[in-house]
Each structure stands twice: as C-alpha cells, then as structure tokens.
C-alpha cells in the first residue's frame, strides 16, 4: 500500500545544532504512528516540519504522493493535514463551538460578499459548519460546554477542544503533539481510547508522546528518535524489545507515571466511548 505520508532525508539545523538529522518516515493510511524518543530527540521539530510550521533544511515530504516540502501551513491544512499543539493554542475568548467552527475554515468557501448579501449558500454553509462542529464536540464528549468561552475550560477539556478543532474537517492526517501532557492517569486512558476512535473513523494519526502508557496501546507502528536520528522503527512489541531503544532509554528519558500499568486498548476505547 502506498504510504499516506512519506518523509525522506528530513533534516533541520538550528544554528550549529542538528535537531533532526536525515530522518525517514512512512505512515500507512488508517494507522496510528507513534514518534517517541528522549527529551530533545527532535520529535516536535519533526512534527512541526510535517505540519509546515517549521521549514526543513533538507529532505522532502510527500503527502498522498504529492511533494509538500515547501507548501505553506494553511495550504497543508486545506490538503487535510491538521494538528494540535503541545502548549495549548485555543482561541481563548471565542466559545468552544466557535473554536471548532474555525477548524472548518480550510474546508469551506464562502467569501465576504456571500456574507454581505446573506446568500442562501452562505446560510447553508454556516448551518453545515455549526452542525459539523457540534458533531465533533459530541465525539470528544464536550457538547454540553459548546457555549462556554474556551479559555474558561479546565486543562483536560481544553486539550479535547483542540482535538475536536483538528478533526472537525475530517482531515486525512492528524498530528498530535503530546496530547496526554498534563493529563492524569484516568484522562490518559480516555485519550488512548479517543485516539483509537479517531483512527477508526478513518483518520491517519502521527502521535508524538512522552508517556509510554499512551504510546504503546495507542500506536500501530512506532518510530524512535534519538539525538535527531532515527533509532528504530516497528510495532510496539518490536520496539519494546529493541536493544538500542532500551539502551537509549536507560539513560533516563521515559516518563512513567507512578501507576504505569499498561491499559488494554479495548478497555480504554470502552472508557472513551
């Protein structure tokens, strides 16, 4: 099967430092691919290059066989690459529903003059956007908070709003940047379920995450980065046994929670639904 995302030789320098060094990555459609590694391994840099927020120093990125290495962020978004941010980036003073509606921006067309004339097409589109946004909110379980200002929500809910905003337009590829950061054990379990559910709805996912209790049950395949280089690639089971990976992590990079029992995927999915 041709990969949805195909990255090759991707490199990024920051001054003299090489944050990502000649990394290759292939993500099969319909899978959850994890990107893990110790702190400073270049995971977020990698994700930022795929989303377009960072330009690459060299290498190329293909999305559905099209070269997108130089494509701007907003165009990639319209192609169907959406993301969340490690440090929440919500439109804090807009309502939750409006936040999600902005997520539909790239997939809708009405211009200013449609709004000025209140054309039937504009009315229909606005109604469709709102409807779609409500569905997405319902999917992450926040429909009851739709009219709240986004900034007033508790941290865990804000994470969910970000995810809803990213998936509302049914993207082809969803980039999740540490979605479980700052969540407690129970919330993390729900997050795993949510990630699987999003995948099951037909969205391919690239997941950057520290927490092994999220990565292992959520991912179908995993790439391990260390010092900007690709260390290993494989299924969660292969990665867990990989000698190089074990060595890299013995240096102390894996964050485990006190109660780090591996939740079963099925159980987690149940918890989320």
């Amino acid at each position: 099967m041709t990969p949805l995302l195909d990255v090759s030789g991707l490199t990024r320098h920051f001054g003299g430092l090489v944050a990502v060094n000649d990394v290759a990555l292939e993500i099969a459609p319909g899978s959850v691919h994890g990107l893990i590694g110790p702190n400073g391994a270049g995971k977020t840099t990698m994700l930022n290059m795929v989303s377009g927020h960072l330009s690459s120093s060299s290498g190329w990125i293909r999305f559905e066989r099209e070269l997108i290495t130089k494509t701007p962020v907003d165009v990639r978004a319209r192609l169907g690459i959406r993301r969340t941010f490690q440090n929440l980036k919500l439109f804090r003073e807009m309502t939750v529903l409006e936040n999600i509606m902005v997520g539909m921006h790239g997939q809708t067309q009405c211009e200013i003059w449609h709004a000025l004339l209140r054309t039937p097409r504009q009315k229909a589109e606005e109604a469709a956007i709102a409807e779609q946004a409500r569905k997405a909110l319902d999917f992450v379980g926040l429909l009851h908070l739709a009219e709240m200002p986004a900034g007033s929500l508790p941290y865990g809910s804000q994470r969910l709003v970000e995810i809803a905003r990213a998936i509302v337009a049914s993207p082809k590829l969803l980039l999740l940047d540490e979605p479980a950061a700052g969540l407690n054990g129970a919330e993390s379990k729900k997050m795993v379920g949510l990630i699987r559910a999003i995948r099951d709805s037909g969205v391919t996912i690239l997941l950057v995450e520290h927490h092994m209790d999220v990565v292992m049950p959520a991912c179908d395949t995993i790439t391990v980065l260390n010092y900007g280089k690709r260390l290993a690639n494989g299924t969660p089971a292969q990665i867990r046994e990989h000698p190089e990976v074990i060595k890299a992590y013995l240096g102390g990079g894996v964050k485990r929670r006190p109660k780090a029992d591996q939740p079963k995927a099925a159980e987690a999915a149940h918890a989320a639904s």
């Binding site: 989303s51 927020h53 907003d74 978004a77 980036k89 919500l90 439109f91 921006h105 997939q107 337009a169």
Partner: peptide, 8 residues
C-alpha cells in the same frame, strides 16, 4: 499559529 493550522 492555530488559525494558520486551521487553514486561514
């Protein structure tokens, strides 16, 4: 940044 990532 978030607006850009939504396609604006």
């Amino acid at each position: 940044e978030a607006a850009r990532a939504s396609g604006v």
